[in-house]
Every structure is written in structure tokens, then in C-alpha cells.
């Protein structure tokens, strides 16, 4: 049952990524060129609702569907890892025109070269794992 719920959430997410055009390389280019409001509208409205939602969940101690407490794991305080890692991610996001969610959506659409991007992303993650202790965090 829970498996089915995760699958449905994933399907909704995949449909949204495709239909919103957030999975389009062209939209990502346009966003970084500041030539359209579209992507900013998507992120901005998702975020505005998200902030209110998280605050309400915390304020009223809303429980999950299974009656458990909803946890928000805090991120570790640091500057370098977020800034340097973020810049490297941004370079890749703009070049691939897709972030890790839409990459998978696009496989379902039938853009098979995206498989290469995903394999390279897995490899990139592995390289991070190898170098983790040597990098400033």
C-alpha cells in the first residue's frame, strides 16, 4: 500500500515536471537569461505555499497520515560546501538543462541520451564520495 502511494506521488511529480516545462532545457536557459517569469513563478509559488505549509505543520503540530510526528531534519551549518557545491551544481543544471528529478522524467518521455547524463551524475556522486574527506565543508 505504501509502495503504491510513493509510486503515485512520483507519477504526479513526473507529470508536473513535464507539463510545467521545468524539464525543458529551453526553459532553464531562459530562466538563467532572465527572459521569462515562468520558472520564477513556478519556484516562487511552490515556495510561498511551502513556507506557509511547513509553518502551519510546525505551529499546529500536524501529524502525518500515519499519526507520526513530521520531522524536518535541520541542515548542518556551513558555508563552503553549500556555496561551492551549489555553484558546481548550477553549472551542470544549466548545461544539462535538467536537475535530478526531471532527468528521470525525460527518460520516460523517451529522450534516451538523458541516460548518459544520469550515469555521469551517478559517477559524479561517486567521485564526491571518494574526495569527501579532502574537500572543504
Amino acid at each position: 500500500m505504501r509502495t503504491l502511494i510513493y509510486l503515485i506521488i512520483g507519477i504526479l511529480f513526473g507529470i508536473t515536471m513535464f507539463k510545467s516545462e521545468a524539464a525543458s532545457w529551453f526553459r532553464i536557459y531562459e530562466m538563467f537569461k532572465f527572459q521569462s517569469f515562468h520558472m520564477y513563478g513556478i519556484i516562487g509559488s511552490a515556495l510561498s505555499i511551502g513556507i506557509i505549509m511547513v509553518q502551519l505543520i510546525k505551529r499546529f503540530n500536524v501529524k502525518s497520515f500515519y499519526g507520526e510526528k513530521i520531522n524536518f531534519p535541520p541542515k548542518n551549518r556551513s558555508f563552503y560546501r553549500y556555496m561551492i557545491g551549489g555553484i558546481i551544481f548550477g553549472l551542470g543544471w544549466a548545461l544539462a538543462g535538467a536537475c535530478p528529478g526531471p532527468m528521470f522524467t525525460l527518460i520516460g518521455v523517451g529522450f534516451l541520451p538523458m541516460v548518459i547524463v544520469i550515469i555521469a551524475a551517478i559517477l559524479g556522486t561517486y567521485i564526491y564520495g571518494l574526495l569527501q574527506k579532502k574537500l572543504p565543508h
Partner: peptide, 13 residues
């Protein structure tokens, strides 16, 4: 592009 995304995202958490 894939290498950058994979490395960057894990570094940035």
C-alpha cells in the same frame, strides 16, 4: 553536465 550535477548536488547536500 551529468558529472557536475552529481558531484555538485552531493557536495551541496
Amino acid at each position: 553536465s551529468g558529472l557536475l550535477v552529481g558531484f555538485g548536488t552531493r557536495y551541496a547536500g
